[in-house]
Structures are given as structure tokens and as C-alpha cells.
């Protein structure tokens, strides 16, 4: 006779248990499968088209031939400018939230709520905001004040600004996490030596959180590089003979380029290899950034 410990549960119980676990496993594996399928297809279809010329050439014959160089360059300029505008603001906000704010204060809670809300606003609304505020209000305002005509239209500058706002929550959350990881004892030791709060922040807290600030910036760049909806009407262009030479120029963008090739091109079928290749480059760019961020973060956590 079997020992009670090894006694069978009823067959229906066991079956139910199997179904429960199998369902969950299927879901997880299905997601994994879709992901692998996407990668596999992109690489198979687009891989052969990735050549040096594809990366370094301008598009030719209304985007049906040639390369993606201006789109790559435009995306790079865009995210760099975005980083310059967004990261200092995000870092300062995170410093405020961890170092200055009383956690229960109304203002701190409002800031947190705003950051969470901002993270949930659809990117197309940021696009409208970019048009309504940056281009039509700030840009036109600058033009009216200075007599120039450069600012009152979509441009690299306003797209970067829009993306800086869009990626602000990413920076804030990530920097805040890094600042919170700085041991309280370090702050106390510094203050006990007579350092002011500001000296403690600049000399002890922030230097200890640099990798967090870096992670936040990289994640924001990864998010910004792939974002299309927010810049649709804020300065991106589907074709350009030259690289942007000023922040008020229009620019090409990898994601937008893919969108145009896939939906607006005169002969969608003919450019299929180009579309796949562009997808690979765009994914490579975002994942390179994400992997870098994960790497920097893991070094941060093991230290």
C-alpha cells in the first residue's frame, strides 16, 4: 500500500493543475515565440540588404533605392539634442524628489503624480503638444519677437524638445532609483563633517549615482529613437537631399522613414528589402542602447 505522502490526488485535480500550469506556460512561450518570429523574419528578409552603402548612402529615386544615411544621422541628432534638453531637467527633478522633498508633502506628491501621468499620455498627444506649444506658441513667439522666420515651423529643435518632454518620466524614474540606492550613511557622514546639503548632493550623492543618470539617459534615448507618432508633425520629413545644418532644419528619421516606405511609397513591394533593412537598423539602434543601459545598471547593482 502506498504511503499517505505519495497518495494520488484525484485525477481531475491533477488534470486541472496540469491545465493551469500549461496555460500559463503556453502564454509565456507564445510571447517568446512571437518575439523570436519577428527577429527571425526581419533578419532573414532584411539581412542581405544591410550593406555599408545602405548605411552611408542617401536615398535615391524617391526613396526606392539607396541608403538611409540621412535618416540615421537625423535620428542621432534628434536624440542627442533631446538628451541635452531632457536629462538635466529629469535629473534635477529626481534630485528634488529624493533629496529635498518631504515625502508626504503635497508638492512632492503632485510631482510624482504628474510624472506618472506624463508616462501614460499617448505619444500622439505629445505630438499635438509639440505643434500647439513649441511650434505655434514658442516658435512663432520667437519669430515675432526677433523678426526671424526660422522657429515658427517644425524642426529638429522642436522635435527634440517634444521628445525630451515625452522621455522625461523615463529619466526621472531611473535617476531616482539610482539616487535612492546611495546609502543614507554616506549622506550622514558628509553632513556630520559640516557639509551643507548642497555640498553633500554635488560631492557625494550625485557622483555615486552617475551610472544611474547614465542608465536613465540611455533608456530615454532608446525610447526617443524609436518614437514616431510624437514627431509626425513637429519637423520630420520624408526625404532630404542634405543633412540638417541647423537646429531649425527639418530632418529625416529612421522610424518615420520605415513608416513612409511601408505605407506611403509609390511601390511598396519594390522597397520591401529596404523596409526590412531599415527595421533592422532601427531595432539594432534601440536595442544597442537598451542593452547598454541594462549593462550599466547591472554594474551599478553589483557594486
Amino acid at each position: 500500500m502506498k504511503h499517505t505522502f505519495t497518495q494520488d490526488l484525484g485525477i481531475s485535480k491533477r488534470l486541472l493543475g496540469f491545465v493551469a500550469v500549461a496555460t500559463a506556460a503556453t502564454a509565456a512561450v507564445a510571447v517568446l515565440g512571437i518575439l523570436l518570429g519577428m527577429f527571425g523574419q526581419f533578419l532573414a528578409e532584411g539581412g542581405p540588404s544591410i550593406t555599408w552603402d545602405f548605411i552611408t548612402d542617401f536615398p535615391r529615386n524617391s526613396n526606392t533605392e539607396g541608403g538611409i544615411f540621412p535618416a540615421l544621422a537625423g535620428t542621432t541628432f534628434l536624440v542627442l539634442l533631446m538628451t541635452l534638453m531632457g536629462v538635466p531637467v529629469g535629473t534635477a527633478t529626481a534630485i528634488y524628489l529624493t533629496e529635498f522633498a518631504r515625502q508626504d508633502s503635497r508638492f512632492a506628491r503632485s510631482v510624482r503624480f504628474a510624472v506618472n501621468t506624463l508616462a501614460g499620455v499617448p505619444s500622439i498627444v505629445f505630438g499635438l503638444f509639440g505643434v500647439g506649444f513649441f511650434v505655434q506658441f514658442v516658435g512663432v513667439g520667437i519669430d515675432a519677437a526677433t523678426g526671424s522666420v526660422a522657429f515658427g515651423d517644425g524642426s529638429l529643435l522642436w522635435s527634440s524638445a517634444t521628445l525630451a518632454v515625452l522621455t522625461l518620466p523615463v529619466v526621472i524614474v531611473s535617476v531616482e532609483e539610482a539616487l535612492r540606492a546611495v546609502p543614507r550613511e554616506l549622506r550622514e557622514a558628509s553632513l556630520a563633517l559640516g557639509a551643507t546639503r548642497w555640498q553633500t548632493i554635488t560631492k557625494v550623492v550625485v557622483p555615486n549615482a552617475t551610472s544611474g543618470i547614465l542608465t536613465g539617459s540611455i533608456l530615454a534615448v532608446g525610447r526617443g529613437a524609436g518614437e514616431v507618432a510624437a514627431i509626425l508633425f513637429v519637423g520630420v520629413t520624408y526625404s532630404s537631399e542634405v543633412l540638417p545644418s541647423a537646429v531649425t532644419d527639418k530632418f529625416m528619421h529612421l522610424g518615420y522613414h520605415l513608416y513612409v516606405l511601408a505605407t506611403q511609397s509609390p511601390d511598396v513591394e519594390a522597397t520591401m528589402p529596404l523596409q526590412y533593412a531599415t527595421t533592422i537598423v532601427l531595432l539594432a539602434l534601440t536595442f544597442l542602447l537598451n542593452f547598454t543601459a541594462i549593462f550599466v545598471r547591472s554594474r551599478l547593482s553589483t557594486r
Partner: peptide, 14 residues
Amino acid sequence: GFPSVVIGFFCLVT
């Protein structure tokens, strides 16, 4: 981390 334009493209073609 997938840009949504890439997901859109995948749906469009596959």
C-alpha cells in the same frame, strides 16, 4: 523596447 512603428510594420507585412 520595440518601437511601435516596427510592430506596426510587422503586422502590416506578416
